[in-house]
Design a protein around this nucleic acid. Structure first.
Length: 419
RNA sequence: GGAGGGAUGGCCGAGCGGUCAAAGGCAGCAGACUGUAAAUCUGCCGACGAACGUCUACGCAGGUUCGAAUCCUGCUCCCUCCA
């Protein structure tokens, strides 16, 4: 497969393509000149996590290849709840929560995309704008007529539920119609003729393609990306501390950097292609590294992925801290970007239990967990294992240094300062 | 409307009056080995407490019992069959 258009060529080389409605025709169209494409996102949480990063990268590449990306945040559709891939309906969010989520979600695009009114500038949209004002009977007459139940029942999102004998409400059943309508609306407003989404969105996407053809008699396209898992088959990005969030207030750039640094060997090449904007030439070179040398590639992956999201400055901080922490074992505690707590004089006089410190630094989620960590030998103060679960931190510990490092295991660390 | 089956910890799934904070698996955490990898082995894996322990938890609300995830009643939701 050798696509003629820059965009599809890049996507193809980097492993972004799973399925397309008419790949050849789309390629011809894209080779002719810029086009407008959209990706829709749910507003069910206040931040994206790494699972959505593939789509964000694609928006970036769209813009880099002179196409116009539309970012659609589903203020309207989130109220319905996408049943795709779920066995049970989600609890519904109210308008307030959705509004807040949209605001918080949209920040992620600031660094990846340039927004504006120009031909290749991105536009951020909220489908509540057209969905909230729909009139039920009119909508049914104008668009309901284009959907048959027979066909709707064959879509995975519906069929799997039915097969498993799980209930699907009429509300959820309508989701695909509304997503199809989004595509039509964007076609009319922006001449958007390509929708991209994850592999699970295929059904929703082809419904949109069909609707545009039926209503406007135009051919538009759909393209899906593969579901990204690690080589071990696990879905990417969950830890005991929660999901790998993209917003810095939920996951610090340092932790984000660490996430990529800890990539499995076998995933490095694939992830470099997908989640960084490094040239393929460079990636090919990095992929050839073997044995422990592949760690260099992992660092570059972490740098590049973090830079894309959080900027160069955050990378420097994260990398310096990581290097001192893991390689030189000489952490400059003054400048390290680790979670930090500051203890008052009074606290140090009475003494602060080690267990509390672990919790306050979010190294453990409960006191019991902290206790177990200590018992298991995973707690360290300035790299010295601390097996006394009743240990009390007092001013005495600060005698030789002003800042202490507290660790849970070899990878998670926090700092303790005194006022 | 009638008859029957079901709802268990983040997920899957056993338990069917005491020995149940609930088998087993997955996920997660820590230790060992390594390369901040994988695989493997070991330990941990509801909350609080130094600890005897206390509290919360087997859909919800009551009840029987010395004692209930387990029995009874009502309710909610799901499934199957009949109308």
């Amino acid at each position: 497969m050798h696509p003629k258009s820059d965009f599809l060529n890049i996507l193809n080389e980097r492993g972004f393509i799973h399925q397309a409605t008419d790949f050849e025709a789309l390629d011809v169209r894209m080779a002719q000149g810029p086009l407008t494409a959209y990706i829709g996102f749910d507003a069910t949480a206040s931040s994206f996590h790494v699972g959505s990063l593939v789509q964000i990268m694609i928006l970036y590449w769209l813009q880099q290849t002179s196409n116009k990306p539309l970012v659609l945040l589903g203020g309207g559709t989130t109220k319905i709840g996408d049943p795709t891939g779920k066995d049970e309906s989600r609890k519904l969010l109210n308008d307030d929560e959705i509004q807040k989520n949209i605001k918080s979600l949209s920040r992620v695009f600031e660094r990846a995309l340039t927004f504006g009114k120009g031909p290749k500038e991105a536009v951020l949209l909220n489908n509540a704008k057209w969905i909230d004002t729909l009139n039920y009977p009119d909508f049914l007459r104008d668009y309901g007529i284009h959907f048959t139940i027979n066909r709707m029942l064959t879509f995975d999102s519906v069929r799997l539920r039915l097969d498993r004998e799980h209930p699907m409400t009429f509300l959820e059943f309508n989701y695909m119609i509304l997503q199809a309508y989004d595509f039509l609306e964007l076609y009319k407003r922006y001449e958007c003729c390509l929708q991209i989404g994850g592999a699970d969105q295929w059904g929703n996407i082809i419904n949109g393609v069909d609707l545009v053809r039926r209503v406007s008699h135009k051919t538009v396209f759909g393209l899906t990306t593969p579901l990204i898992t690690t080589t071990s088959g696990a879905k990417m990005g969950k830890t005991s501390q929660g999901a790998v969030w993209l917003n810095a207030d939920l996951l610090s750039p340092y932790d984000y950097w660490q996430f990529w640094r800890n990539t499995e060997d076998k995933d490095v090449g694939r992830f470099l292609r997908l989640f960084t904007i490094l040239s393929l030439k460079e990636i090919t070179k990095l992929e050839k590294l073997e044995g422990s040398e592949i760690n260099e590639a992992k660092k570059i992956l972490a740098d590049a992925a973090t830079a894309f999201l959080h900027g160069e400055e955050a990378v420097q901080e994260a990398r310096t801290t990581a290097q001192e922490l893991f390689e030189n074992h000489s952490l400059n505690l003054e400048e390290a970007v680790l979670p930090t707590i500051v203890l008052t004089k009074e606290e140090l006089e009475t003494g602060v239990p080690l267990i509390d410190l672990l919790c306050r630094l979010s190294l453990t989620n409960s006191k019991g967990e902290a206790r177990r960590l200590i018992e298991g030998g995973g707690a360290r103060l300035n790299d010295a294992p601390l097996k006394d679960k009743l240990f009390n931190l007092t001013i005495a510990s600060f005698e030789s240094q002003p800042i202490l490092k507290l660790s849970a295991g070899k990878k998670r660390h926090g700092l303790i300062k005194k006022r």
